[in-house]
């Protein structure tokens, strides 16, 4: 018998367990959703999103930074940009939040099995890709070579740097870090390139025919990376883009997240570049 579905617009309760500042405006929040939410979250696929409620301020779509931990907790990486995230950043551990989801479609993991995966993250785009990365590394033997290219504006805005370097040290991950700009004071502080992500990609030799590329970053990044990846020989069907839109309802009704005739909250937020051809407003 089909289990009675939870009313989809009512968030489950969740508690803020732990917060770790990653940069001056970005924090990793570990939350503990109540039991009802856990059942739904157990189906989470990297790339999907949840709707996080901050009582009194509202709701925001967030793509979790990792799969739910075995203890049911969830990591959300959030930048302070609007009034909802502002209030979230003021919350102390123990605070009550709300959560709905997961919603949308994630990365096509089954299809990616056995193939090399190239992750391209710009800025906060590392957050949704981190859940994919963690999945790939946990199931390391099921995938081909895993490469992460991550670009941030400045060294101090680079998120998860130490953690990523540690993961790379285990040998399971090829890691390339780059910053747009490095202030003089940080000279020698970081070992990373200076330049834009597309520059990194240009010098990269890889098995383009078999590789799946996963891209997430600020809006201008997609257009140029998609072109470069295609030029390098990656088929548009295997270029996976995690897009950002202002999903209000998360279930295909409010229509704020439409791109062409698709809805980001239902058909996305992960799209194949091939699906977005002819939709200029998508990227």
């Amino acid at each position: 018998m089909k289990k009675a579905q939870h009313t989809p617009h009512i968030p489950f309760a969740a508690r803020l367990l732990e917060r770790r500042d990653l940069s001056e405006d970005t924090t990793l929040f570990r939350i503990a959703p109540e039991e009802g939410a856990l059942a739904e979250l157990s189906s989470f696929v990297p790339g999907q999103f949840v709707q996080l409620s901050v009582p009194g301020a509202g709701e925001i779509p967030i793509s979790p930074a990792d799969l739910p931990a075995p203890d049911g907790t969830l990591e959300l990486c959030v930048r302070r940009v609007g009034h909802v995230t502002e209030l979230l950043h003021k919350q102390q551990t123990g605070a009550r939040l709300g959560i709905r989801g997961p919603f949308g479609s994630g990365f096509p993991l089954r299809e990616m099995a056995g193939r090399p995966v190239l992750l391209l993250a710009g800025g906060l785009g590392i957050a949704p890709l981190r859940s994919l990365l963690m999945h790939l590394l946990r199931q390391r033997s099921s995938y081909g070579e895993v490469t992460l290219m991550y670009g941030a504006k400045q060294p101090r805005l680079m998120l998860f740097r130490e953690e990523l370097t540690a993961l790379a040290a285990t040998g399971g991950l090829r890691l390339y870090l780059t910053v747009d700009f490095a202030p003089e004071t940080s000279e020698g502080e970081y070992s990373c390139a200076i330049g834009l992500l597309p520059d990194l990609l240009k010098g990269f030799r890889f098995d383009a025919v078999n590789t799946y590329a996963a891209v997430c970053g600020p809006p201008p990044l997609y257009r140029c990376l998609v072109t470069d990846l295609e030029r390098a020989g990656v088929a548009a069907e295997r270029i996976l883009l995690s897009l950002e839109r202002r999903m209000r309802c998360g279930i295909g009704r409010c229509c704020h997240c439409a791109l062409g005739q698709k809805l980001c909250c239902v058909d996305g937020p992960v799209f194949r570049a091939s699906e977005l051809k002819g939709i200029p407003e998508a990227l």
């Binding site: 009582p55 009194g56 301020a57 509202g58 309802c249 009704r253 409010c254 229509c255």
Partner: peptide
């Protein structure tokens, strides 16, 4: 199309509304 907004109350509660957008 609708917009969704939330308003806090003094008692520590709040109300979420949807409105034609």
């Amino acid at each position: 199309c609708f917009d969704v907004r939330e308003y806090p109350s003094l008692s520590g509660g709040g109300t979420r509304i949807r409105e034609w957008d």
